[in-house]
């Protein structure tokens, strides 16, 4: 896939790869590459930015830190882990990618990801689209009311909010309440018909967490803790994540 020759400085070693190896379980096996190429041949991101998983790993091993740390390819690998699945040595290339993303200065990270991460911290809803507790409650009740009034057999349909002691705490991607609320209804109907004891929460209901994608571990954890607390505060036994 390479279109140009990369000069490697003799004797140069990777400080970045070693740093990442110290963070990953078993060092992510990053030194075990046999260069077989199974990762790259089954990776849909192969060819983007003149890069592929094997090349990225080899460049890390050769100490080409500047090149890998500045390659936008880190944002084009989806960290789907198929390369690990295919790899005979189980090398954690996505783990390497995650740490490259983390290394990007915040101001240079893709704005769509970074701003969604920041926005989720504005409200206890954790909504990356900025939906407030009031917006959420209004939409859910409004849609449920319409179904009760217009759909035969669902006169008793409930979309419970903050129901203490419910078995299931269900969360929801912000896209539904914000842009296509009717898409929530089929799920409610299924839960209704099977007699599930479930609830939404006014806090911590948003399923998404973009801080994971920019590898902002502190903010990611903060969001997870807000969500987990919302589940615990209602005494729910099972946290159902729809995403």
């Amino acid at each position: 896939m390479s279109s140009h020759v990369i000069d490697v400085e003799p004797g140069k070693t990777s400080s970045f790869k070693d740093k990442v190896m110290a963070l990953l379980p078993d060092g992510g096996n990053l030194n075990l590459c046999l260069t077989c190429g199974l990762c790259s041949s089954g990776c849909p991101a192969t060819g983007l930015e003149d890069m592929d998983p094997r090349k990225f790993l080899r460049m890390a091993a050769l100490g080409l830190d500047d090149e890998i740390l500045n390659s936008p390819w880190a944002w084009m690998c989806t960290m789907c882990q198929r390369c690990i699945h295919a790899c005979p040595m189980k090398i954690d290339i996505p783990g390497l990618i995650a740490n490259v993303r983390k290394n990007w200065p915040v101001e240079n990270q893709p704005k769509g990801i970074r701003s969604s991460c920041e926005l989720a911290l504005k409200n206890d809803t954790c909504s990356a689209m900025g939906a407030t507790e009031e917006d959420w409650q209004f939409v859910v009740e409004d849609v449920a009311e319409e179904v009760r009034e217009t759909q035969e057999g669902f006169e008793d349909l409930q979309a419970p909010m903050d129901k203490e002691g419910a078995r299931f705490f269900l969360n929801q991607n912000s896209r539904e309440p914000v842009t296509e609320p009717d898409e929530m209804v089929p799920l409610w109907k299924i839960l209704h018909l099977v007699g599930a004891d479930w609830t939404y929460g006014t806090k911590g209901w948003a399923a998404e967490n973009y801080c994971l994608f920019c590898q902002d571990f502190e903010k990611w954890e903060k969001i997870v803790r807000i969500k987990a607390k919302a589940v615990d505060d209602l005494g729910c036994k099972v946290w159902l994540n729809t995403e």
């Binding site: 936008p72 944002w75 084009m76 690998c77 989806t78 960290m79 789907c80 893709p110 704005k111 769509g112 990801i113 969604s116 973009y210 994608f213 920019c214």
Partner: peptide, 10 residues
């Protein structure tokens, strides 16, 4: 669509 690719502006 994973890993934030939908929102990353590429």
């Amino acid at each position: 669509g994973g890993g934030g690719f939908l929102q990353s502006g590429f």
